[in-house]
Each structure stands twice: as C-alpha cells, then as structure tokens.
Design a protein around this nucleic acid. Structure first.
Lengths: 183, 183
DNA sequence: CTATTATAATAACATATGTTACCAAAACGA
DNA sequence: TCGTTTTGGTAACATATGTTATTATAATAG
C-alpha cells in the first residue's frame, strides 16, 4: 500500500487564503505557499493541476468568506441596500486584499458582480424587494445608483480616500437612498 | 570627446508610457521597455537610477496626460461636478490602464486624490465655487458625495459593470447632483 | 520481511525580473 | 591619427517564478 497523505488539499487552500488575506493574491507563489503550508511545492501540484486551478478555488473560497461575512454582519439600518452597502464597505476596510480579489480584479472567474453580491441567498433580490415594499418606484435604478455609490465608497476606502466610521457610513447611505428616492 | 547620445530620456519615458497605456504598468520591465524603445537595457539605467525612479516619472507623465485630457474635454453640462465627473468616467473607460495607475493603485507617489484631481488648474476648487455660486449650501459635502458616485462609476467601468454612454452618464450625474441638493 | 505504490522532499529546468560588469563603438580635441 | 570619454550592446549575476524529474519515505498487502 501507499504512503499516507500528510498535506491535504484543504491545508493548502487555507494557506493560500491566509497569504491572500494578509498580503494579496499576487503574493501567492508556489514557494511562498509551500512555506506557509509547511511543506515542499510537490503536494501543491499533486492536488492542483497548476497554480491557476488553485486560483479558481481560492476565488470560490473568497466568495464563501464574503457570503459568511455578510450573513453574520449585524443589521444596522432599515433602509434598503444600507445594510448590504455597509457590510460591503466595511469588508473593503477590513479585508482589503480579499476585496481587491473579489470586486476590483479583472478576472472574476466567470462570475458577474451580481452573482457575487446576490450570493447563494439572493440578497440583492431581497433588497430590491424590500425597496419595492417601501414604495420605491424604480428599484432597479435605485440598486444601480446605490451600488455605484456603495462601490465608490468601498474603492475609495482602499486608496485611503474614505475613512468614515460605521455610524457616519450608515447615515451617508440612508441619506443617499432618500435623495435618490426623489428621482 | 564623447559619443553622442542616441536614446534620450524622453524616448525611454515615452516607450514606458506606451506600454503602460496599452498593457498596464506591471508590464513595464527593463527588457520590455528596451524592446519598445529599440535599444538595450543600458540606456535605461543611464538616465534612471533604477526602475522605481522611472516609475515616479511615469506617474508624473500620467498625471500630465490626465490633466491634458480633462483640459481638452468638451463641456457637456452646466451642473457642478458633472463635467469633471464625465471626463473622469470616460477616462476610465478609454484609458483603463492609466486610470488604474493614477486612481486605483496603492502607490500615489506622495500625491493625494485631491492633488491629482485639482491638478495645476485648481479644477476641484473651481467646481466647488461653481456649486456655491449655484446655491449649494454644503459644497464640501456635495463634492464628497458626487465624487464617491463618480469614482464608483469609473471603477465599475473598469470591471465591466458600468457601460452607460456619454448622454446617459451626463443625465445620471445631473440627476444625482439634484438628488444630493435635497440633503 | 519484502514488494508495491502513493506521497513528498530535493533539485533541476525554463523563464522572467532588476541590475551590473565588461567591452566595443562613436565623437572630437590634440 | 591618437587618446579620452561617454554611450550603448552583450552577457553575466542574483533572484523569483511555474513546473517537472528524480529520489527517498512511509504504509500495507502478500
């Protein structure tokens, strides 16, 4: 019989995720990854065909992480899109590297922004329905405007051009929603 | 006496700028740059101490390019921030790589976003004064909100999540300004 | 205990990077 | 023409990358 596996796919993926989280996806190399996982480069190429394949699974793991982040994020506002937006902006502030990977990179691995946001729980759909429920006449347009605003805040957080605290962000999002309602 | 110089600093910088514009700053390597400039790598290290120094001058050149782009951009709206915003968004659409370098990268080479936008002509100041002239009570807050919105549009253009044409963008910016006025 | 076999470490290969050493090629005053 | 000096090409060095070949290491069926 054969030798037992000591380095699992999960361990490798987790190590890659850690590096990505701390220093960014570009810092995940075969060797840096091996070092983080405490092995040589061989186990990596046993479980993954190549580094690109690992990139794909890493992206999936990042999606799951964001979904979990949002699922656990405490609700702070009744205003449609405000909670999702607040979580998104805080995610950008707290998990800069993951945010870059998910929402600012060229390669989304076939997924659309909507796919990423809507997640497995249909969160965007829920927010849009919520807006409808609260009497918004053009929920689609509202989502577009709000998302431009939310994404702008998040991206500016990454370059150090947005540094509002949570309370102020909530206020900003609620105000913006009200302002866009008038259109 | 000494041999005449055949490869100038300008030629090298222009070649680097071309590569950046076409394929992104990350694609500017000593060798790719030499190839583009039609020389060996030596002239590069004659005029620049190292590649980082070239990076600095390249950034400056990109700033100048954006300033020129905006200076020549035809005015399409009377609404404060709308022209600047429109130019910014179109710049993101047409010059993706330069936009990334200037407005999305970590390293701004000591310049703030305000520095970059305000340029040598005080454009932001002018827009803020313009808003004041048109009766905006909180021009600073308006700039912040408008810029979040504008930057969000531009960044979404880069990931393919914003594809409005010029007219629609103008309308969107004008509407947003009006909406924010109500705050 | 031994043969088999999957695992994983070492080391290599091929390539790309910044940077430098070295040398050949101008350019021009003497 | 010769000597001096700067310029620029070739080639090297050091390092980092993905990937693969080779070898040593378990693990267990027989």
């Amino acid at each position: 019989m054969a030798r037992k596996e000591t380095i699992t796919k999960d361990e490798i993926l987790n190590a890659a995720f850690q590096i990505t989280r701390e220093k960014g996806f570009s810092q995940v190399s075969a060797r840096s990854l091996a070092a983080k996982a405490g092995c040589s480069t061989q186990p990596i190429f046993r479980v993954y065909k190549n580094m690109e394949e690992l990139g794909g699974e890493l992206f999936e793991k990042a999606i799951a992480f964001f979904n979990d982040y949002y699922a656990k994020f405490p609700k702070k506002s009744e205003t449609p899109f405000a909670n999702l937006g607040l979580a998104y902006i805080r995610f950008a502030q707290e998990e800069q590297q993951l945010f870059k990977l998910l929402f600012m990179a060229d390669n989304r691995h076939g997924k659309s922004l909507y796919d990423l946001l809507n997640g497995s729980n249909g969160w965007v759909v829920k927010e849009i329905n919520n807006a409808k429920f609260y009497g918004c006449k053009d929920p689609g347009g509202m989502f577009m405007r709000m998302w431009i605003f939310i994404h702008g805040s998040a991206c500016m957080a990454l370059t150090g051009d947005y540094d509002l605290q949570e309370e102020d962000t909530v206020k900003l999002l609620e105000e913006s929603y009200q302002a866009f309602l008038s259109l």
